[in-house]
Amino acid sequence: MQPDDVSRVLAPALGPKLLAVEPFAGMAGRVRFERGAALELFPRVRDDLGFRHLSMVGGIDWVDHREVFYVVWSDAAHQYLLLSTDVPADNPRVETASGVWPSANWHERETWELVGIEFDNHPDLRHLLTPDGYEFRPLLRSFKLHEPEELEVKTRHV
């Protein structure tokens, strides 16, 4: 499957909300989409394109904005596909994928607590890896690592 095949299926339904389908080494492509189109895009990727297996969800902090990416796998094509969307840093919010792929549940919990991206309508958005009540978002660029003595202030309260 090539990026053109992906965009041929997705473009008619999403229109301008599908920003681009770029080539990506070792994958069927990298789909860039508007974050508002998430709920229209995910079922189409799963049912029309056949990517039934969601492997991971992650977030990247680009300082001025944040990126959420999804890696999905198709058993028929034996290929991965990368879906990626940008969210603004002051309102990092995107629709959950766990209604379409149940496996997104834990990955989104992890992305929420480490990168600080809110997933709307997530069934169970609580801390997974960090303790309950942990208020820092460690994978943001503004969170700096320190020597342990300075760090205790940040971690000790839990």
Partner: peptide
């Protein structure tokens, strides 16, 4: 003493 994870935010040194 924390080992390779000494500087990590979640590790007791």
């Amino acid at each position: 003493g924390g080992g390779p994870f000494r500087t990590a935010y979640s590790v007791v040194p």
